[in-house]
C-alpha cells in the first residue's frame, strides 16, 4: 500500500500539473479537494483519466467519486480493492 500511495502522489502531480508541490507535501489522508490540495472539477476528471490510464479502472458510478477521491489513501484503497476483485 505504501508503494502504491507513493506512486499515486507522483502520478497526481504529473497528471494535474502540480509542479509547485512535492510528493512529500501531500499527506496520505489530506483531502484532495477544497480545503486540502484545492483541486477543482477539471482535476476530478483528470483523476478519473489517471485511474483508467494507469490502473485500467473505470469509475462507473459517478456517485462513488467523492468517496474514492477523498484522499490519496482512499484512492489507493479503491485501487487495491479493485485489483483484488478484478472488477
Amino acid at each position: 500500500m505504501d508503494k502504491l500511495i507513493a506512486d499515486l502522489k507522483e502520478q497526481i502531480i504529473a497528471q494535474l500539473n502540480l509542479q509547485h508541490i512535492k510528493p512529500e507535501d501531500i499527506g496520505d489522508d489530506q483531502p484532495l479537494f477544497v480545503e486540502g490540495l484545492g483541486l477543482d472539477s477539471i482535476d476530478a476528471l483528470e483523476l478519473i483519466v489517471l485511474l483508467q490510464q494507469q490502473y485500467n479502472i473505470k469509475l462507473n458510478n459517478a456517485d462513488d467519486g467523492p468517496k474514492v477521491f477523498r484522499s490519496v489513501k482512499t484512492m489507493a484503497e479503491y485501487i487495491t480493492q479493485h485489483q483484488a476483485t478484478g472488477k
Partner: peptide
Amino acid sequence: KSMASPALFV
C-alpha cells in the same frame, strides 16, 4: 488518440 485530457480541453 488514447484518452482525451479534460485539463487540455478547457
